[in-house]
């Protein structure tokens, strides 16, 4: 039995295993950048890590703050611009990209724009950024969802998954053949998309989670894989890497914030300012 791990560590490690050696990978901020660093260090040393800001072939030394963070690596191989990072994707040079999810439907279509009415939103989410472009043209896309929700109908359709399912994405003539989301990772399990119908199904559940736990978040009758398995337990080596490289990711946002505030407060007290 390997050492104990946090849920965040499990998610990062599960994500990292989706990257194969020699692939060109576009990383999004947060969990994916740590997953990319882990993959490059442990399983895929020849992978080329890229960001939409034009930072190409970098090796992160600390977790990245965002997708234009050249401070977190020591140099990189190719400084191109955003325009070229996307045309490179359009032309088929990007194997896999990672996107975060606000709302997702059963065909992997995404909303990261708003909750409620588009013109007078209840919540105005950040917007597409590069998401709609990347999921359109990367050979495959890994979706990660920590705070989002499953819905029957998106409040706003930001980024194209498998549209209405079946052959609709391929048939639209808008996307490279057989591109689209290949996995959705949530805090409860791993979902994949049926080869024929393109509807998502539950492929793995994380240790300690039941199928009912998963189902209660989902408004449609979720399909379950006939060989449903439990998400692979991380190894000591994987856990050690994440904990050393990205301790704030291991800790998670809440604990990190709590400890950070305490730390700032303590420093201020030492200086006699508060």
């Amino acid at each position: 039995m390997s050492k104990k791990y946090t849920l965040n560590e499990l998610l990062i490690i599960t994500c990292a295993k989706e990257i194969k050696d020699y692939e060109n990978v576009i990383l999004g901020v947060g969990l994916p950048t740590t997953a990319g660093a882990l993959a490059k260090a442990l399983y895929a040393p020849h992978t080329t890590l890229m960001m939409e800001s034009g930072i190409i072939d970098f090796e992160p030394l600390i977790p990245l703050n965002h997708i234009a963070d050249a401070h977190s690596c020591r140099g990189f191989s190719y400084a191109t611009d955003l325009f070229s990072a996307f045309t490179m994707t359009y032309r088929g040079f990007v194997d896999v990209c990672f996107l975060g999810v606000g709302q997702v439907d059963k065909y992997g279509n995404l909303n990261t724009t708003c909750i409620g009415d588009y013109y007078k939103p209840d919540l105005r989410l950040p917007g597409s950024g590069g998401a709609a472009d990347f999921i359109s043209y990367a050979k495959r896309t890994i979706l990660t969802m920590r705070g989002g929700q499953f819905v029957e109908k998106l409040d706003y359709f930001t980024s194209p998954g498998y549209l209405e399912g079946g052959e609709s994405r391929n048939g639209s003539g808008l996307f490279p053949k057989d591109s689209g989301p290949s996995m959705l990772l949530t805090t409860k399990g791993v979902f994949r998309f049926d080869n024929e119908t393109k509807e998502m199904y539950l492929d793995k559940i994380h240790p300690g989670v039941t199928v009912n736990d998963v189902k209660k978040d989902i408004p449609w009758d979720l399909k379950i894989s006939s060989n449903l398995t439990t998400t692979e337990r991380p190894t000591d080596r994987e856990i050690d890497f994440v904990r050393y490289f990205a301790p704030v990711e291991s800790a998670g946002r809440e604990l990190m914030m709590e400890l950070a505030v305490t730390s700032v407060f303590n420093h201020a007290q030492e200086r006699g300012k508060m």
Binding site: F86, Y90, T113, Y118, Y119, S128, A132, D133, I135, S136, Y137, Y156, F157, T158, S159, P160, L163, S172, L174, F175
Partner: peptide
């Protein structure tokens, strides 16, 4: 530009 958005509200909803 990249035409993938034609399947989405980015194309369909105008400001």
């Amino acid at each position: 530009v990249l035409e993938g958005v034609m399947a989405t509200d980015l194309f369909k909803k105008r400001g």
